[in-house]
Amino acid sequence: MFKLVTFRRFTAVLGGVVAAVLVAVVVFFVIYAWPAIRLNGWHFFTSNTWNTGNLYANPIERNGRMILPGAHYGILFLIAGTLLSTLIAVVLAVPIGAMAAVFLAECVPAQLRTAVSFFVELLAAIPSVVFGLWGYVVVIPFLGHHVYPWMTAHLGFLPFFSGAPGSGYGLLTAGLVLALMIVPLITATVRDALVSQYRGLRDAALALGATRFETLWTVQLPATRRVLVGSGILATGRALGETMAVLMISGNALNYLPRNIYSPISTMASFIVSQLDSALQDPTGLAVRSLGEVALALLLIAVVVNGAARLLLYYQDRTTGTTT
């Protein structure tokens, strides 16, 4: 079989497009953002001002590149908004998702499990923009008028819970909606891990006299640890890159670090949508390339986070033989 075009090669080349796309996107953004990376340096991550400069003035030269006077690109507020909203989402979604998985795996009879699970898994099917719409018309008025004022009044003694409750747009709202968007991933993975678990573990613990919940808490859940961590990291990756819902409910703060959990924020992904139009107005092209640098940073975070989660889950597959 010394044919040049074998079926195997054919599928490898055609299927290789999938890998090529990822490489192309990463390489493209490195090249595209390179002028901005050179000019912005480390200040890009540590300074808190995104200013495209005076669009009507003549460009001036700095470090051998033409830029608009007053132009300065720093995204500390984006990093803060992205990480904090993701942190809130993950801190809420992991325990709630895992406990909902416990309910589905242990309290629902096997024949009904698929149907009942659908209620949670449907959350994964709802488009981001529909979450945004729901957040905009239902969640924000409710939280802004009723919940947040109550929270400042009664939980104000906690750090970050005091201060102006705002209008409902902001960090906590974004975190809550993001939590709902990522929770089905955690619930589905942990439920499957619990259901497909080796039954001998459970039976041994029950035989020793442990109650069903003690068995679950001390034997069954710890056995899913790696799956829980893996799906938690995957969920983190999703929350970091979420765009539309966050764009519609976060308040789109500019050059502003959150003071409390009600503060308006922007995330890196939502900032790209909200600023691309105005960045295109910059005749030197530096604004749009700096925005490309935001995309590159987001891209690299996503690659690292998803890569780590996958390696962890592959390892789980190999050690236990279960598929996730």
Binding site: F28, A269, A302
Partner: peptide, 14 residues
């Protein structure tokens, strides 16, 4: 599997 996690806005920008 890593491509699944690519933020969709990054794809759009590309």
């Amino acid at each position: 599997d890593v491509l699944v996690g690519l933020p969709s806005i990054v794809v759009g920008y590309f």
